[in-house]
Nucleic acid binder design. Structure first.
Lengths: 188, 188
DNA sequence: TCAAACTTTCAGAAATTCCTGAAAATTGAG
DNA sequence: CTCAATTTTCAGGAATTTCTGAAAGTTTGA
């Protein structure tokens, strides 16, 4: 398995970024390699390409599986498992967002809800709860919006994104419209 | 400096989340403490509250400063520095997004641009470049959209978010409208 | 059922990151 | 300028995370 300098720098970059992200270097590199690979790779090929031990690759792949970032397939007459990444980069992005939400956002919201239920025992606690509540509302708003958006089809999403801040004008327009018709487009 | 159980669990949660984030535990805890604190704290108060060494707090605060997540102030007749977090949670969110973009997204885009400039030496390289280009386009689209959105005022942003996926209908509406008038709302 | 082909587990070595105390540097009042 | 108050730096010990090789586990074809 010979990796070209082009692929090597890509793989190395993902390794470094990985550690900045809480994901470990090995996992980042394995993912990067699979992402640019023309065909699915088995664990031995990965180990050889990246000069990792076979067992390290096994653990890395397990981690990637837990993030739902790799596909697994078999070839007839070959008992080894072959790994690849999904083709659709949008789908990858959504998977990543879902997993991060599940692992990071949900536990935080749970903790905040819990804290907000407590009866404040002092002024300091009352203030702390107030701050937590502000944080809660922000996270809640941003993440539900994000998941709303995620469920739109890619075409609409791309149109929305390309529209950029011009969406502001559209919103202003529909607002004045709803004033006329008396119907509100908000969900509140 | 006595922290109540309420604040303690908040602080502990941020410590743990921190490590999942690539930010270290200490830094996460210091930030959490400042976030819920009623008044600005000096380094000694932080060190005592969290039972960290004074020097560790100093390093943590430096890190938070580099993320522009803390404000620094002085009180007359007191030479010590007092730290706090900005009041506006939206502003905090934007700062965080900006910094992450600068630290993680920009370098990745630069690397990808570089890789895409290379002349492919094989089919495998051609494929790798194709994949990198897909990744590039996705990141570019999402981040420019994100920064567009960031520059909207908070009210509009909140309206947009509350609208959720219903924005789809608004978009469809303006599209049919633009077909009638012959003007395109896209920026392409 | 057996055995070869693969994969996973896991104890501990290696590497990295974190944290501390001591010392150096900086700051500002007098 | 001097000195005390405060902050920063940094070498190295502590803790944590990563990685490996050996062994155990699993699967499948004959």
């Amino acid at each position: 398995m010979n990796t070209t300098p082009l692929v090597q720098s890509f793989v190395a970059h993902f390794g470094e970024m990985g550690s900045r992200w809480g994901i470990n270097r090995t996992v980042g590199q394995i993912y990067a390699l699979l992402f640019v690979s023309e065909k699915p790779l088995n664990a031995d090929e990965i180990a050889e390409s990246l000069s990792f031990s076979r067992s390290n690759v096994s653990m890395g792949l397990k981690e990637l599986e837990s993030w739902r970032l790799v596909k697994l397939q078999h070839y007839p007459g070959d008992r080894r498992e072959y790994f690849s990444t999904p083709d659709d980069v949008w789908a990858i992005f959504k998977t990543l967002a879902d997993e991060r939400k599940k692992r990071e956002v949900e536990p935080t919201l749970t903790m905040l809800r819990g804290a907000m239920m407590e009866k404040p025992a002092s002024d300091a606690e009352r203030h702390a709860q107030q701050r937590m509540s502000e944080m809660y509302q922000l996270i809640e708003l941003v993440t539900t919006w994000f998941s709303d958006i995620q469920h739109m089809d890619v075409e609409t999403l791309q149109r929305l994104m390309k529209l950029g801040s011009q969406v502001q004008k559209v919103l202003q327009f529909t607002q004045s419209l709803s004033k006329l018709t008396g119907r509100d487009t908000d969900r509140e």
